[in-house]
Design a protein around this nucleic acid. Structure first.
Length: 802
DNA sequence: ATAGGGTTAG
């Protein structure tokens, strides 16, 4: 950027700001005194040489020529030096210098010079203001802009077309589109620039509709649209995917023979890409004769936006092959989402390296795009270190960082980042909440969910469909299905995601019949189901044991709805068949399915073999899983638990060693409970809380009432030699039980007790919870990552399958 | 001598 230049005096480099306006005045005063002493008589400046010029005239003309040439060549030190030598420079001279400074990025200096001009009593003219107003835009200074605007009014230049156009542009670029509107409305004469400025101002403020309206009004006012209008209005069409309007503008472009204008070509390629017609972009691109970097960037972006990462990349490669074209930051920004989409971490990293070598940093947009790519490629540490080294961050980069944490399954981290962001006095927006709500969904209790919901409403995002959909899921996962239903009810225009989410919400709470009913409600409302609808529906059927219904829906997917089952659907079906009892059928299903089984698919079969206590199958399946994911902790733990149940302690030990040698650790089981209004986190055998002794006392009383744990829960399958080992595996003080007791202690009689767990509840605790619910006559709700068990009167809604 | 434009992150 511009280095500091001194415009308030020629001796010392400094700039005059509002704060030190007084010293500036003094300096300026001195200069005037000096100049006044030096030359007594000043001649009026003439525009050309004439034979009878005086010496003074000649030298002043010479100075003016030198000044102009210095300004033209960007030598401002010299230009300013000459300027200081001129006695009483004319308004024209001042204007030339202000223009030169503005055009070369010396915005502050241009503004300072204008203030000095004003102070020295040199009258500004209609030319002065467009230059200095442009400097305000460059400096992003609304304060200066408003001050200069008031000078415009006082001096009566607010009727000048050029000055008004400059003001319209200034206010729209400084984010005050209403001010632009006001000035525009008061203009008696408007030209194409005025209209175009309003149109592009609306586009910049994201107001697609106003910009289209303005474009229409412009034509109604019989101002013919030009290339500037076309480029702006295509931007408006891109904004909300107004394909029809875009095509209409394209027709006008052809009629006006503007279709070989390089910038219009770029805008058209971009517009078709953003409206989802990438074939049109491609066709246009192939006809472009002179391919600029911007055109390449547009087509790379168009493929990226239209889910064609491979073609996006091949464009990039072709671009590299063509001569004299250097990818710039925008190229990388447009390409990085394709890296993310393909999980092409190596390519993403090489983009990063390329950017470093080309000296593109710091660049907040590029850095955020890299952060996002790293997050989506599952490299949270790289995403985070990107953020840490960023010189400038903004709401978008914070949001991307939060998303990276959530995508990596680090919900706690995401919540911390969210807190940090708020303490930096950044105001969360709609996307912040859409990103952070899944973190609440995984970690929060209903009360915390209500708090974030209250914040959302307070900030005015309560009716956003994206947020409402995220809220439905959040409440359901936190255990409050009623709140989820309420949010759903309040959505005026429910979209397919709203329906998918509420269907799954009831599924995870064990109300499969409601899920099924909601699906038919959805059909009745004329909402077309998509693949995710069937994931919700099949998951609900499988969780709730509705085997026949699930199978029917699965077969109707293709026949009735023309949706090809994806890997998630097959996963649901394995779950479903697994619990039907016919485990061979489930295995056969996997062998026959047309997609390559993933570790998750095998994981479903592993769960089923555990339930049916089929250790041979479990071992076989575990082998498959570990060959796909050697670090699948869940698989080790499940197998180890099965060995423990069979008292095969040597196998238990060997799994423990195997995990240890790989540095794998069991997830520490913990339970969450609201205790006296606050979330309390409890681990197995946890004694760390102030409330611990009370909770343990309560548990002891209950244990005694329901019998010793080994009798109640051990189911007599353990013989004395196993007792010692068994004690080490005792579920007596598992977090779930401690949490249930804490809940019983801190809530009124008759209300349900709600516990959240990070791992599935063990069989012993499940049995205990059933008995406790009967004994205390309380409803106990225990949520694990998959399902909410609802215990009452000694029974659980899972019907003992989970 | 004065004003407007293409490709840019969540």
């Amino acid at each position: 950027m511009a280095t500091a230049l001194c415009v308030s005096c020629s001796s010392k480099p400094s700039t005059v700001t509002d704060k030190d306006f007084l010293p500036g005045r003094r300096k300026a005063g001195k200069i005037i005194e000096n100049l006044d002493v030096g030359i007594n008589v000043r001649s009026p400046i003439s525009t050309g040489d004439s034979p009878n010029m005086t010496r003074g005239m000649k030298s002043s003309l010479e100075q003016r020529r030198r000044l102009l040439s210095f300004v033209d060549s960007g030598c401002f030190e010299n230009a300013l030096h000459v300027f200081e030598e001129i006695t009483r420079p004319s308004t024209f001279i001042w204007n030339v210098l202000i223009r030169g400074l503005t055009d070369n990025g010396f915005y502050q200096e241009a503004i300072d010079l204008y203030y000095r001009m004003e102070w020295e009593g040199v009258g500004s003219d209609k030319y002065t203001f467009p230059f200095v107003i442009k400097a305000c835009v460059g400096l992003f200074s609304l304060v200066d802009g408003q001050r200069i605007h008031s000078r415009v009014i006082k001096m009566g230049f607010d009727k000048d077309l050029y000055v008004c156009n400059s003001l319209v542009i200034m206010y729209s670029k400084l984010g005050c589109i209403e001010q632009s509107e006001k000035i525009f409305a008061d203009m008696l004469v408007k030209d194409a620039v005025s209209w175009n400025s309003m149109i592009s101002g609306y586009v910049a403020s994201g107001d697609c509709l106003s910009s289209l309206t303005c474009f229409r009004d412009m034509q109604a006012a019989r101002i013919s649209c030009d290339r500037f209008s076309v480029i702006s209005i295509l931007g408006a069409c891109s904004l909300y995917g107004c394909l029809l309007k875009g095509k209409e503008v394209h027709c006008q472009v052809i009629r006006r023979q503007l279709d070989s204008d390089p910038m219009i070509e770029t805008s058209l390629i971009d517009m078709y890409g953003k409206c989802g017609l990438v074939e049109y972009s491609d066709r246009l691109f192939n006809r472009v004769s002179q391919r600029s970097v911007a055109v390449w960037n547009a087509i790379i972006g168009a493929y990226g936006l239209n889910d064609e990462p491979v073609r996006s990349f091949s464009c990039f490669e072709r671009m590299l092959e063509s001569d004299n074209l250097d990818p710039n930051a925008v190229t990388l920004i447009n390409l990085l989402p394709s890296c993310a989409r393909m999980r092409a971490l190596v390519q993403g990293k090489s983009m990063h390296g390329f950017a470093i070598r080309k000296g593109m940093f710091p660049h907040v947009v590029l850095e955020t795009a890299l952060l996002d790519m790293y997050g989506k490629c599952g490299c949270l540490n790289l995403a985070d270190s990107m953020f840490v080294q960023m010189k400038e961050t903004n709401l978008i980069s914070w949001n991307a960082r939060i998303a990276a944490y959530v995508q990596s399954g680090n919900e706690k981290g995401a919540l911390h980042v969210f807190q940090d962001m708020c303490s930096e006095h950044l105001h969360p927006d709609e996307i912040t909440f859409v990103n952070i709500l899944p973190a609440y969904a995984e970690t929060a209790l209903p009360k915390e969910g209500q708090q974030i919901h209250a914040n959302i409403i307070k900030l005015g995002f309560g009716s956003s469909i994206f947020i409402c959909n995220a809220l439905i899921y959040m409440y359901a996962k936190c255990g409050d299905i009623q709140a989820a239903q309420l949010v759903f009810n309040c959505i005026v225009y429910k979209d397919v995601i709203s329906w998918n989410t509420i269907i799954l919400a009831y599924g995870i709470h064990g109300f499969g019949e409601i899920s099924v009913r909601l699906f038919s409600d959805m059909m009745a409302e004329g909402i077309k189901p998509n693949g995710s609808t069937f994931v919700s529906l099949l998951a609900s059927c499988s969780i709730c044991g509705m085997v026949d219904e699930g199978q029917n829906y699965f077969s109707s997917m293709k026949t009735e709805y023309n949706i090809d089952p994806g890997i998630e659907h097959y996963g649901c079906m394995v779950d479903l068949l697994g619990r039907s009892g016919n485990i061979d059928l489930a295995k056969h299903f996997i062998d026959e399915m047309p997609l390559v089984p993933t570790a998750r698919i095998w994981g479903s079969l592993l769960s089923a073999s555990r339930y049916h206590r089929n250790i041979e199958l479990a071992e076989l399946v575990a082998d498959r899983i570990l060959s796909l994911e050697h670090d699948n902790t869940g698989c080790y733990v499940l197998l180890s638990n099965m060995y423990a149940e069979l008292r095969r302690w040597a196998d238990v030990e060997s799994i423990r060693c195997s995990m240890q040698s790989q540095g794998l650790r069991r997830t520490t089981a913990c339970s969450l409970i609201e205790y006296n209004g606050k979330a309390l986190q409890i681990t197995n055998n946890d004694c760390s809380h102030a409330e611990a002794s009370m909770i343990y006392d309560a548990l002891d009383i209950i244990s005694r009432k329901i019998g010793d744990d080994l009798h109640v829960c051990g189911v007599l399958k353990f013989k004395p030699p196993d007792l010692i080992r068994r004690r080490a595996h005792s579920a007596m003080y598992h977090s779930a039980r401690l949490a249930i007791c804490a809940g019983l202690l801190s809530t009124p009689v008759g209300t349900p007790v709600l516990v959240r767990k990070n791992v599935r509840i063990c069989e012993d605790c499940h049995n205990a919870a059933k008995i406790i619910s009967e004994m205390t006559d309380r409803e106990i709700v225990v949520g694990d990552p998959k399902f909410y068990h609802r215990f009452s009167n000694g029974k659980c809604t899972c019907k003992d399958y989970w």
